[in-house]
Simulated assay, not measured.
Amino acid sequence: MTSSTDPGTRHADRLRQQGFDFIESGAMRDWLAATGPLDDWPRFAASWGDLAPDTYLAKLGRHRRRRHAVFSLDGIGHPAPAIRREPHQPHYQSLDYNPLQGDIERWFEPIEAAAGDSRSLHTVLRCCQQFFGALSPQVPRWHAEVHQFRIEARADAPGQPTPEGMHRDGVDHVLVLLIERQNIASGTTRIHALDGRELGHFTLTAPFDAALVDDHRVLHGVTAVEPLDPAQPAHRDVLVVTLRAAAV
């Protein structure tokens, strides 16, 4: 029987009540560590130093770095739920969900094998598989997209974590996990109801700070980031995992 103090139970209750949840770093790390190994986390986090430019956003005069991968996650009804990396494929959102870059297939550089095969990433995916699977036990398989983002900021060009503004991703569930903030101010996550009312806000400041989002019920966005010291490099690194029920 699941204990009422189980983190999955607590976060599921909050997600059902308000459509989102903010998890502080210590609690999130403990939850992940209880799910699987994190022993290669430093090497996994270091892979954000080798992301590729987002050429689609650069055409609009904005800058960020990213890599992308797609995984299939068996639903929790499977006797031995597996996690499989799928062949590289484009990221697609309709204009309904991304008015800035919707209705186009965007091909990003793939997440490198060392990061994609890492024990840390698979622990994150296993946590998503178990948690979101428990919320939707009828789903036999999930289409999971994994995004590594680095938002860079300069004194003359603040970084835009969500250049499309307040939005939905067009999926079922979203996890945003902070990897690192270096020399960054602001970057506040805002959550709005579908009618535009603000429901809450928080800032991911420490590695492992996380946000869970019910993409059917709320909009989310992040304010621009600026360097604390304009003379030094400044960036915000996040891992974003989205899940939607796969066609079967």
Results as ranks from 00 to 15, higher is better:
Gln148Lys: 09
Leu219Pro: 01
Asp21Trp: 02
Ile104Tyr: 12
Gln130Cys: 12
Glu109Lys: 04
Val171Gln: 10
His216Thr: 05
Gly133Asp: 00
Arg190Gly: 02
Leu228Cys: 14
Gln129Leu: 06
Leu204Val: 08
Arg29Thr: 03
Ala210Ser: 13
Arg16Met: 01
Thr223Arg: 11
Pro81Lys: 01
Asp13Trp: 11
Arg64Ile: 07
His235Pro: 00
Pro233Gly: 09
Pro90Tyr: 11
Phe132Gly: 03
Pro37His: 14
Ile151Leu: 00
Arg154Asp: 12
Arg14Gly: 01
Gly116Lys: 04
Arg14Tyr: 00
Arg181Tyr: 01
Arg64Thr: 10
Pro87Ile: 07
Ser4Leu: 15
Arg197Ser: 13
Pro99Asn: 03
Glu226Thr: 14
His11Gly: 00
Pro230Cys: 09
Trp107Cys: 09
Phe44Thr: 02
Ile111Ser: 03
Ile76His: 05
Phe132Asp: 06
Phe208Gly: 00
Arg67Ser: 13
Asp172Leu: 02
Asp13Gly: 15
Ile191Leu: 10
Leu15Tyr: 00
Pro90Arg: 02
Gly187Cys: 07
Glu86Ile: 11
Glu24Met: 09
Arg154Trp: 15
Ser186His: 11
Gln130Trp: 10
Val176Asn: 00
Gly102Glu: 06
Trp31Lys: 10
Pro110Met: 09
Arg66Val: 09
Asn98Pro: 03
Leu194Glu: 07
Asp172Glu: 11
Ala82His: 10
Leu204Lys: 01
Met166Phe: 07
Ser118Met: 07
Ala27Ser: 14
Ala58Val: 11
Ala246Val: 07
Pro140Tyr: 03
Arg64Lys: 08
Phe22Val: 13
Glu109Ala: 13
Gln182Ala: 15
Ala34Met: 03
Glu112Gly: 13
Thr5Glu: 08
Val176His: 08
Arg106Gln: 01
Thr189Val: 06
Ala245Asp: 13
His173Arg: 15
Thr35Pro: 08
His147Asp: 09
Thr162Leu: 03
Ser72Asp: 15
Ala247Lys: 14
Ala193Phe: 04
Ile184Asn: 06
Gly49Thr: 12
Val225Phe: 08
Arg217Asn: 10
Trp41Asp: 00
Phe22Leu: 14
Ser72Ala: 15
Leu243Arg: 08
